[in-house]
Design a protein around this nucleic acid. Structure first.
Length: 723
DNA sequence: GCGATCAGGT
DNA sequence: CACACCTGATCGC
């Protein structure tokens, strides 16, 4: 294990220059907004000796870069014993292969003051206010709990009944006992055992007992009727195995009874058997297997009435009925009057199919709840929904219009106007080149990406110009820059009913946004609530960029340092572009990414800061997940052994701020020769920004698009925005 | 063999 | 934790 040091934000000192000022917002055309050399900085060590004091070129040459700052506290953090040699250079980091995923564990996190760095602060801050607003999702969740509870009751009852019921018990000495009279029948032949147990069984049916008040009933139909009419009074099973054996016999497969006895297959187990299971327990002939599976499908059918089950399985004994009575008993807990046989399967899953896609109105002035991406995915799984009949979340629908936004996972034929706010997978998921459900409306940049990456033909795409009102199916639609990633838009819908809906998509608040909306009375606001929690109060992007720039300057005391900046397919461009501008250094990006940036409409001035020749730059843009762990970073290090002795990675994400001190522009982690900065560079709005935005828009209803901690919490958090 | 989708991972 | 992906397995054509 290598030396491990983590500097939490609590004690990590930002290089002095960054404490000077948070500079003016950056504009792409004005790189000078961030001063290159803060005045109070000591001269930096030269990265490439003999080339200091060279005027930065218009087309920068990385060899001319000159480092000038003193490494300050960062030096303190690097153990002096660290061996800075890193193995052989092998190739591009962007083409990393498979890496191990366990490095979390070998990173011991201790800061200089001895605190555990994974502080509980963030968690303590997390308030969990449950307002209990009524909504579909709330119901859904309750539904899950309820159906889980039902399942638990069912399982418990089944195991109880198994505990009580008699079975052909195989003793430790492998002796076989009759479940009814407990006589040792090991010495009997199969046939004799059957005869014996059947005789016992028949006897037990004819003998009244406190366990079975219905044994007098010899008539199957009366059993079925009673099972439906009076499920509560039903007795426990006489035995779990005997019905199986009788059922087997009714199929003409008595010769397999010993197999079922040996495997202790009771009625419950029987119903879950697959053909493979049957093969594995020794039913090697295809015919009998098929016969059993076939008969089982009839028994299992949840829609089949008891009588149908009986007819399909040719079961003439009362045992099937008894098992069904058992189930009826279980379900009675929640559905006392409803016979199981008449109950639709969907009724066991409230909030799913029966809820439909109708738009519900939320109580004012707070949120209407709707599932987040991830929670709705989980919901689908928990319901065993195969994904074919997904319920469209509220945030994908525009009230008062037939429009859908970012809803390609929920394609339906009743809609032909599909809006895409931006090109991130979780928003375009489900969109494929076979899309034939109408038009896709999006920004020019998004349209280019959709066309290039997904192969959607241009005929399907309708480009929306920023700030231009267009009429689609009688509804005015205007879109604005969402300040999230290139091409991202927020969309204003103004239907004839006068109830305007603003869908923010994913967005990072900027002041001009409220100006665009002056004069529009927003009835419903579909809001990106990714960081809708007071714990997420991160700095402006400019401050984080500033932090990164100065951290690079500070770490650059070692000329053999490789800097890595994490990025998505699209997103975070501003960060590395500004880094390049301010440091006046080219930055390596892979050719695919370069093509993408050209497609995104970056100017030639911007593009000149990038190179696809990795040897031209010691600042590389890499996929964010490459930086996710020290293990991965070690792989990177191994590929660059000769060239670099120190790796400094920047992992830009908003959620970093949740666990660090408020407004901290970053935290620093180190393992040996690898340093990782987690910087709260977010392309979503902070809680403060959300609050400001909501106050300016002052909508009647807010529909959150993301539930971080479940719908209750989302509603509670959204309610904080309007207080 | 291919694309689409799902499940599980970071 | 949540971001916006990724990989591998499975399915249907």
């Amino acid at each position: 294990m290598s030396n491990t040091v983590e500097d939490d934000d609590d004690d990590f000192q930002i290089p002095p220059s960054s404490q000077l000022s948070i500079r003016k917002p950056l504009h792409p055309t004005n790189a000078n907004n961030i001063s290159h050399r803060p005045p109070n900085k000591k001269p930096r060590l030269c990265r490439y000796p003999g080339k200091e004091n060279v005027t930065p070129p218009p087309s920068p040459d990385p060899d001319l870069f000159c480092s000038s700052s003193t490494p300050h506290c960062i030096l303190d953090c690097i153990p002096s014993s660290v061996d800075c040699s890193l193995g052989d250079f092998n190739g591009s980091i962007s083409s990393l292969g498979e890496e191990d995923k366990e490095d979390k564990d070998d990173c011991i996190k201790v800061n200089r003051e001895g605190y555990l760095c994974n502080s509980m602060e963030a968690r303590l801050l997390k308030s969990r206010i449950c307002l209990g607003f009524d909504s579909g999702i709330h119901e859904d969740d309750e539904g899950f709990v309820e159906s889980n509870s039902e399942l638990d009751v069912l399982i418990n009852l089944c195991s109880e009944s198994e505990g009580r019921s008699g079975e052909f018990s195989l003793g430790k000495d492998d002796s076989i006992q009759c479940p009814l009279c407990s006589m040792d029948i090991s010495s009997l032949s199969e046939e004799q055992r059957q005869v014996h147990s059947n005789t016992c069984l028949d006897k037990s049916y004819n003998q009244p007992s406190e366990q079975d008040s219905l044994r007098k009933c010899e008539n199957l139909s009366s059993l079925i009727k009673e099972s439906i009419d009076d499920p509560v009074q039903l007795p426990q099973l006489v035995t779990d195995l005997s019905p199986v054996l009788k059922w087997l016999r009714s199929l003409g497969l008595a010769k397999y009874e010993d197999v079922f006895i040996r495997e202790e297959i009771d009625w419950d187990t029987l119903q879950s058997l697959t053909e493979e299971d049957l093969l594995s327990i020794g039913i090697t002939s295809l015919g009998p297997r098929k016969k059993i599976v076939n008969a089982l499908s009839g028994v299992r059918d949840p829609f089949a009435s008891s009588a149908e089950v009986q007819a399909q399985s040719h079961c003439t004994s009362g045992h099937v009925t008894e098992r069904q009575r058992d189930k009826s008993t279980t379900r009675k807990a929640s559905e006392p009057k409803k016979p199981t046989a008449n109950k639709l399967i969907t009724e066991f899953f409230p909030g799913q199919a029966t809820e439909g896609t109708k738009i519900r109105t939320a109580p004012k002035p707070v949120a209407e709840k709707s599932p987040s991406d991830s929670s709705s995915r989980r919901a689908v799984r928990r319901n065993g929904n195969n994904g074919k009949s997904k319920v469209i979340p509220h945030w994908n629908c525009i009230p008062g219009t037939p429009f859908r936004v970012d809803a390609f996972k929920y394609l339906t034929r009743d809609c032909c106007h599909w809006f895409l706010t931006h090109f991130h997978l979780d928003h375009y998921q489900g969109l494929t080149k076979s899309f034939s459900h109408g038009k896709i409306y999006c920004s020019l940049v998004t349209a280019k990406l959709v066309n290039m990456k997904l192969g959607i033909p241009w005929e399907r795409l309708q480009v929306l110009d920023l700030g231009q009102k267009v009429n689609i199916s009688g509804i005015d639609v205007t879109c604005f820059d969402a300040n999230h990633c290139p091409g991202s838009i927020m969309i204003l819908f103004e239907p004839a009913n006068g109830k305007a809906v603003l869908h923010t998509g994913d967005f990072r608040y900027s002041e001009e946004m409220s100006n665009w909306l002056i004069g529009s009375h927003i009835s419903s606001l579909i809001l990106d609530t990714t960081y809708c929690n007071p714990q997420y109060d991160f700095p402006k992007q400019e401050a984080v960029i500033q932090f990164v720039v100065e951290a690079i300057q500070a770490e650059a005391f070692n000329p053999k340092t490789l800097f890595l900046i994490g990025s998505y397919t699209i997103g975070k461009e501003r960060l590395f572009l500004e880094v390049a501008r301010v440091l006046r250094e080219k930055i390596y990006i892979n050719p695919v990414k370069l093509k993408l940036l050209e497609c995104l409409g970056f100017s030639k001035d911007d593009i000149q800061w990038f190179t696809v020749k990795e040897e031209e730059s010691h600042i590389h843009v890499v996929p964010l997940w490459t930086l996710a762990s020290f293990k991965r970073l070690k792989h990177v290090a191994n590929r660059y052994t000769n060239r670099y002795s120190l790796i400094v990675a920047f992992s830009p994400t908003g959620w970093t701020s949740g666990k660090t001190k408020k407004k901290s522009p970053g935290r620093r982690l180190q393992q040996g020769t690898i340093i990782r900065y987690e910087v709260p560079y977010s392309e979503h709005s902070s809680f403060t920004e959300l609050k400001e935005f909501v106050q300016k828009v002052s909508p009647e209803v807010i529909i959150p698009s993301v539930n971080n901690d479940g719908p209750d919490s989302a509603a509670a958090m959204v309610s904080l925005l309007v207080t």
